[in-house]
Amino acid sequence: MKGFRDFVKFNLITAFGATVVANIAVVGFIGWLIDRYTFNNKVIFIISLFLGTVSGVYNGIRELLKEAERYEKLDRKDDNDNDDSDSS
């Protein structure tokens, strides 16, 4: 299971990238819609792209930290189990 988990950890890299891009897309789309029905001069759209980048990096890092913490806990649990089986 640990070997499989190590393989799954590589998913974190693409997960971070996908989160950033998806956040930019969502906020960009909302910004584009607002811009279209208000001033129609692309200012809100550009601002929303920046906000999307900030939100993407924030959510990406939050997700990374959460996953890293979970994997750390599981690895520690595996190590403890191995130590117990070695001592017995």
Binding site: A25, V26, V27, R62
Partner: peptide
Amino acid sequence: LIGELAKPIS
């Protein structure tokens, strides 16, 4: 909110 909405898209 944005983070949650972005999840199904990514």
